[in-house]
Simulated scan of single mutants.
Amino acid sequence: MTPRILAAPRRWRRHRAAEPTPRGLLVEQPRHGYGSPGFGRAVLDHSIGRPAAEQDRSARYRTGLAQEGSSAVAPYDIKRDLKQLYAPKNTAWSLLDVPEQQFLAVDGSGDPNTAPAYAAAVEALYATAYTLKFAAKQAEGGDFVVGPLEGLWWSEDHAAFTSRDKDAWSWTMLISLPPRVTPEQVDAAKQTAERKKRLPAVSTVRRLTLREGRCAQLVHHGPYDDEAPALAELHDSYLPAHSLRPGGRHHEIYLSDPRRTAPAKLRTVLRQPVEPDA
Rank of each mutant, 00 (worst) to 15 (best):
P183E: 01
P75H: 12
P183V: 02
D56P: 06
Y254T: 14
P183R: 05
G24I: 06
P240A: 03
R267K: 13
A87G: 09
L104V: 05
A241E: 05
R211Q: 15
K197P: 04
W169M: 05
G248Q: 00
T114Y: 10
P229Q: 09
C215P: 01
G213M: 02
Q101L: 03
T2P: 07
I5C: 14
V186Q: 03
L244R: 11
A188G: 05
P22C: 00
Q29F: 10
L95N: 12
E68T: 09
D56S: 15
P273K: 12
K89F: 06
H220G: 03
V181T: 12
L244I: 14
T182M: 09
E252S: 10
V145D: 12
K83V: 07
D56W: 08
K196H: 08
A121F: 02
L244N: 13
L132F: 06
E140I: 01
G151A: 14
S109N: 13
R60P: 05
K89T: 15
R50H: 02
S109Q: 13
G222H: 03
P258K: 02
M173R: 02
E275Q: 15
V205D: 00
V43Y: 14
P116A: 10
S243F: 05
R195F: 00
D97C: 03
A53T: 06
A74Y: 06
P276K: 11
A189L: 04
P20Q: 12
T131L: 02
R206N: 13
L208E: 14
R214L: 13
P178N: 13
H221M: 09
A74G: 12
Y130S: 07
E28W: 12
W12Y: 04
